[in-house]
C-alpha cells in the first residue's frame, strides 16, 4: 500500500488557484499503484507529468519508484507550478517543475526518451471558447475546460506522444466517457501504432472515469 501524498501544506485558498485532487486524481493514483511492479520493471529514468497541478500524482509516483528517476512536471498555471514544487518538498520527492505547455519545453531533447508520461487533462466538455480562454488565461479553469468533446487539449498531446515515449515507455491518460474512449484508442493505434488499454474505470458521481494506458505496439 503506497500512501497518498501529504498535501497538508496546501490550504483552501490555494485551491482557489490550483485544482484540488478529486476522484479523477485518485483513480489515476490507484491505476499507477496497481501498475507499480510493471513500472519498476521498465527501469525508468525519466518521468513527465503534464498539468501537474497540486503535484500529488508525481509525488505518488516518486513514492513508488524512488530517487533513481528524474521527475519532470509542466503546468501552464504558474501557481500550480509553485504547488507542485511545495508538494514535492513536503513528500521528499525531487521534482523539477517547468511553467510550460504540454511537453513542448522538452520536445527537442527528449525524443523517444521519456519512460513514463502521465496526463490528467482538462477533459470536461465545455464550449470551445471557454476551453480556449482557460488555456490563455492560465488559471484554474484550464484544469477542466476541454472544449466540445472535452478533447481540445488532449488531442494536441496525443499527436506528440509517439515522439516522446521511450521504447518501453508507458503513457497514462485520464478520460471521461464523453471523450469517446474507444475512438481515442483506435486513433492512437491507427495513427501511431500505440496500443491503448483501459486499465481502470470507475463511476464517480456524474463522471464515468477511465484510465487508459498506452505502450508501443511491438508486434
Amino acid at each position: 500500500m503506497i500512501s497518498t501524498p501529504d498535501l497538508s501544506h496546501l490550504r483552501t485558498a490555494d485551491y482557489d488557484q490550483v485544482y484540488e485532487p478529486a476522484e479523477d486524481t485518485f483513480i489515476l493514483l490507484d491505476a499507477l499503484e496497481e501498475d507499480a511492479e510493471g513500472l519498476k520493471a521498465i527501469k525508468p529514468s525519466v518521468c513527465l507529468e503534464i498539468g501537474s497541478g497540486s503535484g500529488c500524482v508525481t509525488s505518488f509516483i516518486g513514492n513508488i519508484l524512488g530517487p533513481s528517476v528524474l521527475y519532470l512536471c509542466t503546468d501552464i498555471n504558474p501557481y500550480a507550478c509553485k504547488c507542485t514544487r511545495w508538494t514535492g518538498i513536503q513528500n521528499k520527492v525531487d521534482i523539477n517543475v517547468v511553467n510550460g505547455s504540454l511537453a513542448t519545453p522538452f520536445g527537442f531533447r527528449l525524443v523517444r526518451q521519456i519512460d513514463i508520461i502521465v496526463f490528467n487533462p482538462p477533459y470536461v466538455p465545455t464550449s470551445e471558447e471557454e476551453a480556449f480562454g482557460a488555456q490563455i488565461s492560465r488559471d484554474i479553469g484550464g484544469a477542466w475546460a476541454g472544449g466540445s468533446d472535452g478533447m481540445q487539449v488532449t488531442n494536441i498531446l496525443l499527436n506528440q506522444i509517439e515522439a516522446l515515449l521511450s521504447p518501453s515507455g508507458r503513457f497514462y491518460l485520464v478520460a471521461l466517457k464523453q471523450n469517446n474512449v474507444p475512438n481515442i484508442i483506435q486513433t492512437m493505434q491507427e495513427a501511431y501504432r500505440l496500443k491503448g488499454e483501459v486499465v481502470l474505470q470507475r463511476r464517480a458521481g456524474r463522471e464515468h472515469l477511465f484510465i487508459i494506458r498506452f505502450v508501443r505496439n511491438l508486434s
Partner: peptide, 10 residues
C-alpha cells in the same frame, strides 16, 4: 523563484 517560464504567447 526557481521556476522557468517556458510559455509562449499565442
Amino acid at each position: 523563484n526557481g521556476i522557468p517560464n517556458m510559455l509562449l504567447a499565442e
